[in-house]
Each structure stands twice: as C-alpha cells, then as structure tokens.
Simulated scan of single mutants.
Amino acid sequence: MEDRKKPAGPKPANKRGAARLAAVQALYQMDVSGGGVLETAAEYETFRLGKEIDGELYREADPAWFRSVLSGVVSRQKQLDPVVRNALTEDWPLSRLDSTLRAILRAGAFELTGIKDLPAAVAISEYVDIARAFYGDGEEPRLVNAVLDRIARDRSTAK
C-alpha cells in the first residue's frame, strides 16, 4: 500500500492568500516609508502582483481583495488599533510589536471585523501562515493566532 503523505512546508497560497500577503507587505512598506495608499497600491498592482522581480516570481493575487484589505486597514486604522490592543495581553502592547507584526494583525483585524460572511478560521489560518513566512515557528505566529482568534470570538459574541 502506498503511503501518500503531504509534503512538509508551507502550502501554496491561493489568489486571496497572495493578496493578503501583498497587503501585509504594502502596509509594512507604507509604515516604514511613510508612503500613501494610492501610490503603494498602484506600485504593487503594476510591478509586483503576479510579476517577476529580481528573479522571484510573485504569485498571482486577487487585486480587488488586495485593494480592499489595504484601503480598509488604512481607512479604519483608528478603529482597528484599539481592537488589536484589546486582544493583546498586557505584556504585549501594540507599540512593542514590530511593523510586520502590526501589519499582519491590522489586516487580520480588518477582515474579521469589516468583511461580512468571512469564515474566521480561513482568515486566521492564512494570517498565521503569513506570520510563519516572516517569523518561522517562533512566538509571533502563535501570537497572531491568539489575537485574531480573540477578535473573531468578540465579533461573534457581539452579533
């Protein structure tokens, strides 16, 4: 009998997953460079999503989902930060998190609080995968999972 185990390693991203990753990267870029949402979105859509850069092929992404997450986080950041802050433990204030982790949590919080009929487990899983891509199996992916899970539970009890 043949043993058919899945190969280890990260699973390939779908178009929404690739859009989520690109949105996190764009949010990080905007945070460190001070760039605006319109020019950053245009740069990603023109030169990155599904394109080859320095020999690396970026995955094809859903551009509408990318724009939705990116613009949603930017327009609702003042509402999202308290949601994320409340889901963090006291020993992990939002200000202590690095720019990448803040971008992941803000994007996840936006989807969980701002997009109706979104399966929370799918969004949480994809943002945990993004955290693993940046941080490996360290503490950060577990933090992303815990924070986004708290936000999702708060969302479901508020309905």
Rank of each mutant, 00 (worst) to 15 (best):
N14V: 02
N14M: 04
A87L: 03
L148F: 10
D149A: 13
L143W: 09
V122L: 11
D3G: 09
L57N: 11
L49P: 00
L118F: 00
S95K: 07
I130S: 01
A131V: 06
A61G: 01
S33P: 03
R155Q: 15
A42D: 14
N145G: 13
P119L: 08
A120P: 01
G36I: 02
I130Q: 01
M1R: 07
R102V: 13
A120V: 05
Y127F: 09
A22W: 01
A18R: 01
I115S: 11
L70M: 00
E60H: 08
V69K: 01
A107K: 03
L27W: 02
S95R: 07
S33A: 09
R106K: 09
T40A: 02
A41L: 04
R96M: 07
E39K: 14
V83G: 00
L94D: 08
D117G: 00
G36M: 07
R20W: 10
Y44C: 10
L105W: 10
A87P: 05
E52T: 15
S156C: 10
D3M: 03
D3F: 11
I53M: 02
R85F: 06
F110Y: 15
P12K: 12
T100G: 07
T46M: 05
Y28D: 11
G136W: 00
R153F: 11
L27K: 06
E52W: 03
F134M: 01
G35M: 00
F66K: 04
A64K: 04
A26Q: 07
Y127K: 05
V144P: 09
A18P: 08
N14E: 06
Q77C: 02
A103T: 10
T46N: 04
R20P: 00
L57D: 11
G34F: 12
Y44W: 12
A42Y: 13
D154V: 07
L94V: 10
V74T: 05
T113E: 15
